[in-house]
Computed example of a mutant assay.
Amino acid sequence: MEIPLVSIITPSFNSEKFITETIQSVQNQTYKNWEMIIVDDYSSDATISIVTKIALQDNRIKLFQSEKNSGTGIARNTALTKCKGRYISFLDADDLWKPKKLEIQINFLKNNNLPFTFSFYDCINEQGKELNKRVEAPRNLSYRQLFFCNYVGNLTGIYDVNYFGKITISSIRKRQDWMLWLTILKKIKSVQPIPESLAFYRIRENSISASKLNLLKHNFAVYRRFHGFNLVFSLLCMTGFLFTQLLIKPRYIKNTKASI
């Protein structure tokens, strides 16, 4: 029985507080045939020394260093050139996977003959405490739905290189994950998520998602520069985006404590 290699792309930048736990969550996977490609984006803290020490003990972990700080998009693209796996998966340097994440996803892809999937995920704070919040998604996510809201958590997406090839996104510095999923959904039209939480997303005080103004700015850039829309149409798209954020997406954010 074929056990395909999964390539895990992890950009890092000044991640000394979190990177060890992130790597351990990969090492704890029940699915063992993986490689973890970490591209450090010119960190000034102890990230490189921490990863180097771990990599010496586990040859599935490979570290590459950028010569200057270029952003997570460039780091992910650099990692993509190093990947050897049939499947490409993503995990940022402060997020965590649950132990059966890869096993469940690979089985789901193979059993349903799918080239792409993602899952729900739970949220934790900067200290790693669970926030009793689960982010879900439509059970049959269409390109149109994704166009107005990024329902796919970057730490949960996985795609088949045999079907798509290696997909490079480089038009703007932020929101590359959304652009990647849009590229994929434009080809396959819709995707089925795995309807359970397989990962923990860490909400940090200085993150894009924590700054609503920055989030709006970067999302507008997706419509303006990635899609190439003119100013007026991009503003109309942002109206649809805001409508989705205010009235539709909240339906997919669950209070897990209340549901127990």
Rank of each mutant, 00 (worst) to 15 (best):
R204M: 14
L213G: 02
N162W: 00
T183G: 00
D40N: 10
F118Q: 05
R224S: 09
I208F: 02
L96D: 00
L80Y: 12
L63C: 03
Q27R: 08
L246D: 05
L5D: 02
P250M: 05
T22G: 01
K17D: 14
H218Q: 13
I9R: 00
V222N: 09
R139Q: 13
A258I: 14
E67T: 12
S197T: 07
V39S: 10
S25P: 00
G228T: 04
S43H: 09
N214H: 03
E2C: 09
Q245Y: 11
N150D: 15
T20C: 00
R76Q: 05
Q192F: 14
F220S: 08
N140M: 08
C149P: 01
S209N: 11
D58T: 07
I54E: 10
G73H: 00
P138E: 07
Y87N: 07
S49A: 11
W181H: 11
K133R: 13
N113C: 05
F108S: 05
P195G: 04
A221D: 13
Y31Q: 05
Q192M: 07
D40P: 08
Y163D: 03
T156Y: 03
F233H: 06
I167Y: 06
I74G: 01
K101Y: 04
R60A: 08
I74T: 12
K166I: 11
P99D: 06
I74F: 14
G228W: 03
M238H: 06
D177Y: 13
D94N: 13
N140I: 11
A93L: 00
Q245M: 14
L155Y: 04
G71H: 09
D41C: 07
L236K: 15
K82C: 09
E196F: 04
E35P: 13
L247G: 08
N255S: 10
S70E: 12
S7I: 04
W34V: 09
L80M: 14
H218D: 12
I38P: 04
C237F: 10
T81R: 08
V152T: 12
L96M: 11
Y151H: 08
K174W: 10
K254M: 06
N154K: 05
S25A: 08
I74Q: 11
